[in-house]
Amino acid sequence: MSIQNLTPMQIDFLKELSNIGGGNAATSLSQMVYRPIKMEVPRVKLLPYDKVFTEIMGEEEQVNAVSIRVLGDTPGNFLFILKDRDTMDLLKMIMGEDARKDLDEVSLSALQEICNILCSSYVNALSRLLNLSIVSSVPAYVQDMFGAILPTAYIEAGQYDDYLLVIENNFLARNNNIKAHLFFIPHPGSLHKIFSIMDI
């Protein structure tokens, strides 16, 4: 199916799917850090490739990213993205005095575990909602420019279009001073399967 032909009802369902997945993910993260984690209204939007970098984040922004593969009935990718300052602040929130100034092995492990917890909760919620078997893979860390990381994740998920289907949750912590982005990037075939199940 072409992502450019999505109906308003299908977009609406993806918003709710992102709301349920992201909401459950925020709950799990808050249990891990013993603090409230807020979530913005999810963004589900078909964006022309170049608009992604004006609407979401600048192409040259240096970011820390963790990617996780979605396996099972609805394959795809998750991409968890944080700017440098937000990464260190989030790690301080989790590790307290033990947080390092640089991203050493322990910090990277903590960052990957955060992503693991977010994505596992997300897929568990989707799995219950859709009555499908969906699991997530082990996390992989990468540091690069936003403009290099995001397109790669979309290509890996089989989305080669001029338009990107953005399904994004933004999580906020510590009085909204820390912002983390989670992108859910389903394979086009997974979308088709989800819509068939929901009969939309």
Partner: peptide, 9 residues
């Protein structure tokens, strides 16, 4: 009726 089930919420 929300997905944000954390205790504080």
């Amino acid at each position: 009726c929300s997905a944000m089930g954390q205790q504080a919420m």
